[in-house]
Write a protein that binds this DNA or RNA. Sequence first.
DNA 1: TTATTAGAGACAACAAGAATCTTTAATATC
DNA 2: GATATTAAAGATTCTTGTTGTCTCTAATAA
Lengths: 139, 139
Amino acid sequence: MKYSNATNYALHTMVYLIWLPKASTVGVQDLAEFQKLSPTYLSKILTKLTKAGLIESTPGAKGGYKISKSPKEISFLDVIIAIEGESNLFNCSIHHNEGCLIEKVMRESEDNMKEELSNRLLIDIVEKMELQKQAKESN
Amino acid sequence: MKYSNATNYALHTMVYLIWLPKASTVGVQDLAEFQKLSPTYLSKILTKLTKAGLIESTPGAKGGYKISKSPKEISFLDVIIAIEGESNLFNCSIHHNEGCLIEKVMRESEDNMKEELSNRLLIDIVEKMELQKQAKESN
DNA sequence: TTATTAGAGACAACAAGAATCTTTAATATC
DNA sequence: GATATTAAAGATTCTTGTTGTCTCTAATAA
Ligand code: SF4
Ligand code: SF4
């Protein structure tokens, strides 16, 4: 059990887009080159992010992607769900039993992780990165 | 991303073994029938649990499996690691960066889940199940 | 010695993920 | 309106890991 690579790529892309100057769009070509990925493959990941409302896309010349304005507060969980879907990690094999204690523990532990992931915003770590960068430059 | 079915089977088996009267062994045949599984397949799962030290196996006539005496306190996490291994959910694709903030968040959230899973003991839910059963019978 | 049971190995079936190629649709610019 | 540019969708292949079966070997109680 592990996250798909697509989730990894999506997180990197989102951080990059947030780090970018606002209102500037960037094409899938650049994003792919930045991560050493095939543009068509990354395109599918970006489409998922778009459908989840995390980024906006405009086709045509001078088009590309940019961060969706409305959610200035995009959490890690938002990105993960956009890629992995929102199904549970643990699902009962055969006879689903209402109020089962095994399931309860598994779900609760998963919720713990999701809780943490929903509280962590991408913008926070981007800001930290910029601080680190500034500190380095002032050396 | 989801738990493998093997983890599900392993959890059911462990709960069943703990629920069983102590020191009584049960063969893979019975355990497989109980879960509607092929014995040979379940056998592999049981071998993993044995190697992890969670259960003991004795071959030969009147042999079978029983819960390992020493750890009366087997956590959910123990079972999960025995099956899924102990690799991280999130691992960096290409250029691993020391002190990366993305990785940090992902690891911390995962640790949250594992923390919860390590605090939950199988024996606890077996005891709860027995209480539920008694309550039902006294009706 | 024999019946019984776990364990190991090879192997097939299947599903999901990763990745590429091709075609289509939308849009800014001229 | 024509054209260049760019996202989106579809089909398809490749790879990987899981699931499951079959067969053979090793250990052990009776
Ligand atoms: S986890 Fe509980 S509800 Fe799910 S299959 Fe097992 S016993 Fe049934
Ligand atoms: S998560 Fe961080 S350390 Fe890992 S590949 Fe991405 S940037 Fe590098």
